[in-house]
Computed example of a mutant assay.
Amino acid sequence: MAKISEIMLLQQPEQPALAIEVQTDMKGMPQAIGENFVRIDTLFKEQGEVTTNIPFVGYPDFESLTEEHVRMIIGLKSSRTLQGTGNIKSVIIPARRIVSCLHRGNYNELAQLYNEMAEWIKTNGYKASGTSIEYYYSNPDVPEEEHVTRVEMPLL
């Protein structure tokens, strides 16, 4: 399917979140993401909070991601600063300009969207900076061709 929205330039406000850094391989990604979303959501509930957005996964080393080595930051945004515990950290996502786009389809097709967004950034005189984030709108039970993902790329 591919891109289902235009590439948009947006300004995001500072936002608190709970997040955990995980290293796995491609095969272990779904389990790592699912288990850690549950852990973080449980910590939200213990503190009487609900998330302000859908779950996200950041890829700090996207350029060096391989089948065997995937570094992810898995998290949920909140309306206030929450207490982390163990390897779940309380973080502040800084205010920043981003480029954002929605995609429908198989996750393997996201590389094409990343390339298109990188070209948009270059063509419009911007520079990418920092960790790209993916927001997963679809339940794992949804067929792969119907998965909806929002990709955000921060700018300098």
Results as ranks from 00 to 15, higher is better:
22 V>T: 14
87 N>M: 10
110 L>R: 01
27 K>T: 11
148 V>F: 02
114 Y>V: 00
59 Y>N: 08
41 D>C: 04
6 E>A: 00
80 R>Q: 15
16 P>L: 07
53 N>T: 11
37 F>A: 00
26 M>G: 04
33 I>H: 02
115 N>K: 12
141 D>E: 14
58 G>M: 08
42 T>V: 14
14 E>S: 04
83 Q>T: 12
132 S>W: 02
41 D>K: 14
49 E>S: 15
44 F>N: 13
34 G>W: 04
4 I>C: 01
103 H>A: 10
97 R>T: 02
130 G>L: 04
43 L>T: 04
7 I>Y: 12
131 T>S: 05
69 H>M: 15
110 L>H: 03
79 S>E: 12
76 L>N: 09
130 G>Q: 04
27 K>D: 09
78 S>L: 01
140 P>C: 03
3 K>C: 11
144 E>S: 12
94 P>Q: 00
52 T>A: 02
20 I>E: 06
145 E>K: 09
95 A>T: 00
50 V>A: 14
79 S>T: 12
138 S>Q: 02
140 P>D: 04
5 S>I: 06
56 F>G: 09
20 I>F: 02
30 P>Y: 00
83 Q>V: 15
50 V>Q: 09
43 L>S: 00
87 N>T: 10
142 V>I: 13
103 H>K: 02
113 L>A: 09
57 V>N: 03
148 V>W: 02
143 P>E: 05
93 I>N: 12
57 V>P: 00
115 N>M: 15
129 S>C: 11
79 S>A: 14
151 V>D: 13
99 V>M: 05
40 I>P: 00
102 L>T: 12
19 A>W: 05
123 T>G: 08
141 D>N: 10
151 V>P: 11
108 N>A: 14
126 Y>K: 10
70 V>E: 07
77 K>W: 09
134 E>C: 08
23 Q>V: 08
35 E>T: 07
96 R>M: 13
107 Y>E: 07
43 L>P: 03
20 I>Q: 13
45 K>Y: 14
77 K>Q: 15
80 R>D: 11
57 V>I: 00
24 T>H: 03
119 E>R: 13
21 E>G: 12
133 I>R: 12
8 M>P: 11
127 K>A: 15
125 G>D: 02
135 Y>P: 10
84 G>F: 09
29 M>F: 08
22 V>I: 05
8 M>A: 12
150 R>I: 08
97 R>L: 06
139 N>V: 01
67 E>T: 06
14 E>N: 06
24 T>P: 05
78 S>Y: 00
119 E>M: 13
57 V>S: 06
71 R>D: 15
45 K>T: 05
123 T>I: 11
108 N>W: 11
140 P>G: 06
64 S>W: 13
39 R>H: 11
101 C>M: 01
12 Q>H: 07
100 S>C: 09
33 I>M: 06
137 Y>F: 15
70 V>L: 10
59 Y>S: 04
120 W>E: 00
36 N>M: 07
153 M>F: 11
5 S>W: 06
88 I>R: 02
76 L>A: 06
